[in-house]
Design a protein around this nucleic acid. Structure first.
Lengths: 240, 240
DNA sequence: GTATAAACATGACAAAAATCATGGCTGTGT
DNA sequence: ACACAGCCATGATTTTTGTCATGTTTATAC
């Protein structure tokens, strides 16, 4: 494993980064990759730590090397809404940077997470000179927009039960399973799941119990096992 | 009025288009503007006509010259969700084109609308060669993503009453008022408003009546007059 | 102008979901 | 091991919202 000692040195090299081929940066010209390697700062965030905060100014973008991150909005009544779940290879903080605004969301590590920070100037400089990378970034934004529009429609039209089923499948799609092949590979509190679904925590707890009763999932503390994916997908009532 | 005869010729010239300074294309290099002028197709859509349909393949982007357009998703149960309202200067159909997918939404003219069509090849060719324009497109996407994330959070957390108030203010922000300074400058059915808010048509009708009772709006058929904007904003309970 | 359909409006009711209350469980630090 | 806090669970209740039914008004076509 090349990445092992690199990570422990605190400063992995982009050209050999484990995420090189899943990140947008894999599309950057090689010359820029070494520039990034030279200027980036590598960091570790412990579970629960905040990477950046809604309302503050962005100084660059973050590229997740390993770990899991949630991106949240604070609603007008102070309730948290999780708008995205992220993992190794994903970049965060670019939205506000491109719009030239403050962060509109807060990023928090869901588990110990390694992240590289790329300064704003370098990021913008590369974008302005690397058309292919800019094009990829544009695509990434277009995809994100599409996903968000879908989520919006589902929030507006689907009952909580369907949305919860959908979110469980979405978590699976994002983080996959543990070695046993059925346990969702992330630990989220009931409240966090509720904040993904857009509902009250109690409703989430109640529905999870129902899903368990209906043999779609098994619950063991924060561990959630998907034991009947097909039925769950049917419950989610998905078409698209 | 330069634009008047241009429009009636059926083929306005981008360099003198009334929307030149509000569209992203105003950032395109002059040389590309004339290329667009040469290749675009100008068209008129009557009220209610479909500009493109969810599920079909994009062959280019549309640039709205004048008029009003709604972009809608079909939910899994066949219910329409309006995801964006557009006007002169806005471009549509770029999202699917950039992602290389079929349209994920349907565009329908809300009133007689003039639109220029720019072929895919030209659009992509220009993007690949005009870094400044690409950068602007990226910003546009970033802004759209932000707006959509906000809408998502509000759909998840706010009650219907607040969302309706918010939507009325949003319509005002988008299309403004008629000459009288209080009548919203667009005619939407109650059902369409409901599909913006994400609620049942009857709920929308009921709440509009309440807003009228509470002296926030006046109703006259499809005409909606905002007579107490401050109170409406308070009802919307906005912070951001 | 008149017929016809579509849109608007309102009441009654049912369903969905949030809130409140309470108790048990689990993990963490001492 | 123990106390404590935070999380999980569940029941009871209220509020919100959707659905169904029905009548009225408005727009549109002939």
């Amino acid at each position: 494993m090349v990445s092992k000692n690199l990570i422990h040195e605190g400063s992995p090299v982009c050209q050999t980064c484990a995420q090189k081929n899943s990140s947008v940066f894999c599309k950057a010209k090689v010359e820029y990759l070494s520039e990034i390697t030279g200027q980036k700062v590598s960091n570790t965030f412990k579970k629960g730590q905040t990477i950046f905060n809604e309302g503050s100014y962005p100084f660059g973008v973050f590229c997740i090397n390993s770990g899991k991150v949630k991106l949240t909005h604070l609603g007008d009544d102070g309730k948290e809404q999780i708008i995205r779940l992220l993992k190794g290879g994903d970049i965060i903080g670019y939205r506000a940077l491109l719009s030239g605004e403050r962060y509109s969301a807060t990023a928090v590590a869901l588990e110990d997470t390694h992240i590289c920070f790329i300064p704003k100037e370098l990021f913008i400089h590369i974008l302005k000179n690397d058309a292919a990378l800019t094009f990829e970034m544009m695509k990434l934004l277009a995809d994100e927009l599409h996903k968000t529009e879908l989520k919006m429609t589902h929030l507006a039209q689907k009952p909580v039960r369907e949305r919860l089923a959908e979110i469980l499948l979405f978590i699976e799609e994002t983080y996959g399973f543990e070695e046993d092949g059925i346990t969702l590979n992330v630990r989220l509190s009931r409240e966090e799941i509720a904040n993904l679904v857009g509902t009250a925590t109690e409703s989430t707890i109640r529905l999870l119990s129902e899903f368990k009763r209906d043999n779609m999932v098994e619950l063991d503390g924060k561990k959630i096992k998907i034991i009947n994916q097909k039925k769950l997908a049917k419950t989610a009532n998905l078409q698209d």
